[in-house]
Amino acid sequence: MDLGDIRSRIETLKKIAEELRSMSDELPALQRNTIRILAGIKMLELNFSEPADL
């Protein structure tokens, strides 16, 4: 299990989700769904990205 690899993929996921969110001002379905996705990504960060930094 490569925690560094998991972390970098989470970062990629987050970047894409944030990009989508920035495009969502006129698309409620895009905005609300990407907010939820980002909340899930935060849980991935708490679980995997943070211990990878230790």
């Binding site: 907010i35 939820r36 980002l38 909340a39 899930g40 935060k42 849980m43 708490l46």
Partner: peptide, 8 residues
Amino acid sequence: DTWQDWEW
């Protein structure tokens, strides 16, 4: 709670 808090 925010949605992120609820996920937490």
